[in-house]
């Protein structure tokens, strides 16, 4: 069950990023960075908006200092992990 939810989160996030990057989900690997996929800073902001809407979570992200935000956008994998944590925190 837990595993399925995790897969689900991953698929949904990849779908969101694929749309921003004008790519097919199959062309996106968890190790990719947003930069590699051609998602610029405004694209990141749109991805985060879509993630918040999709999972009904509040993502702590400031475009001025992405590295200082508590939300790690350095790779697709880090985004997935961060969203999973937000979903987990929300349940508690």
């Amino acid at each position: 069950m837990g595993h399925n939810t995790a897969m689900c989160v991953e698929d949904k996030i990849i779908a969101i990023i694929a749309e921003q990057a004008f790519l097919e989900p199959k062309d996106i690997a968890p190790t990719n960075t947003l930069d590699e996929l051609g998602v610029d800073s405004m694209g990141v902001v749109e991805c985060i908006f879509a993630i918040e809407e999709q999972f009904d979570v509040q993502v702590p992200f400031n475009a001025n200092s992405p590295e200082a935000s508590q939300f790690d956008v350095s790779s697709i994998q880090s985004i997935i992990r961060a969203v999973e944590k937000l979903i987990e925190d929300k349940k508690q």
Partner: peptide, 8 residues
């Protein structure tokens, strides 16, 4: 807020 450029 949506633009994520505001300081808290």
């Amino acid at each position: 807020e949506g633009l994520r450029v505001m300081s808290p």
